[in-house]
Design a protein around this nucleic acid. Structure first.
Lengths: 201, 201
DNA sequence: GCCGAGCCGTGACATTTGTCAGGGTCCGGC
DNA sequence: GCCGGACCCTGACAAATGTCACGGCTCGGC
């Protein structure tokens, strides 16, 4: 019997996943939660065989939760299930030692299969998303550029970003301009969106 | 037996919903799809008792699909299920004659209850979302302001927006400025986000 | 040691964006 | 009829943003 931990922020979807997996022989959902930090706590406490994590969660996002679980409960295999096919996410997930990565566009039957495969020691990467990630170059932005982009993401004016980061306004403008050039977009706002779409932000 | 049409763009989630509702006595899923236009076609063809629509779908969004179904298959009651609690969406849904509106943050048991209630001639509005919508004023933006905001949403510079809308740059800046003031935000980019969050865009 | 590459930081300058005052049109109330 | 209000549109001016040339720092290769 595979003991499964289920983490997904939308209550309704979580319940539906539980119903779906409940019909599968050999799989038992031992706990479910809508928060990333809760997921880590439950993994430590219950030592499930497999943890299935959504990325978009309050408290701690699914990728960060995966990292923590890999550190503290190495026996627990992690599969990420996400609606956003962002190349950077897949990269981060792989770095975190995740064993499975599945997009929400797959047929329902895939899910149980993947869980069994992961539990058996295998790996599963959504072929669609893998192709995207491989065809994609690494993030070309420097740490400082990412900092400024993150700070700019809320729509704050340069003056505020500069204060937050303790930089001169000129420097902030410079980083943003550089990011804009590297991402080949027109202005920082589209740069923010592009970076977010890539999963870099 | 309640004959149900299920429309939700994420295949995996759709399958999970089908599994969840499949365990409910008295409910039969007669068709499922991931596209809004398909949902309308299937409703016309199969005349289900209830259609459960997600908002975020390719082809035709759930709200537009609800409008079409209300026109062409009045016997079919519609319930909207959505992850985004945008006040404007609820308003549009009500205007379209939707009988139920449920956020994805509800417990799984709610769903079947709501479907039964709708089918019995009742209505159900997510109390959480209803409160948001009622506490919210109507969209204060004029048609032209909405046009410019929509055009600005992609991050295009004023010059391009002006060309698209056949306006002088000054006029475009003026509309955007007006929208920014009305929404009480700092610049057009946050204005775009705010308007989108409200479901006005 | 020293050279080059890459990152961090800055100010001055050009361009874009935001703000303001104001003119034109349409429509409903009196 | 005409008044007030709401909307559409514009150009001129001020403020924010984007661009550029430049200097300092660290680190790895030679």
């Amino acid at each position: 019997m595979i003991r499964l931990l289920l983490a997904e922020d939308h209550h309704l979807v979580r319940g539906a996943f539980a119903a779906l997996l409940g019909t599968e022989p050999g799989i038992e959902v031992v706990a479910e939660t809508g928060r990333g930090d809760e997921a880590v706590r439950l993994a430590v406490e219950l030592r499930p065989d497999v943890a299935m994590l959504d990325i978009d969660m309050p408290g701690l996002d699914g990728l960060a939760a995966a990292e923590r679980i890999a550190e503290t409960v190495p026996s627990c295999r992690v599969v990420i299930v996400t609606g956003y096919g962002r190349p950077g996410y897949l990269r981060r997930a792989m770095a975190a030692g995740v064993r499975g990565f599945v997009g929400k566009d797959n047929p329902a039957a895939t899910l149980a299969q993947v869980i069994r495969q992961i539990h058996g020691g295998g790996r599963y990467i959504d072929p669609e998303l893998a192709a995207d990630a491989l065809s994609m170059r690494e993030c070309p932005l420097t740490p400082r550029e990412l900092d400024t982009l993150r700070a700019a993401a809320s729509g704050a004016p340069v003056s505020r970003i500069a204060r937050e980061l303790r930089l001169s306004e000129g420097t902030v403008r410079n980083y943003l301009s550089s990011a804009v050039t590297k991402l080949a977009v027109e202005n920082r706002h589209t740069a923010v969106r592009r970076a977010r779409d890539m999963g870099w932000l």
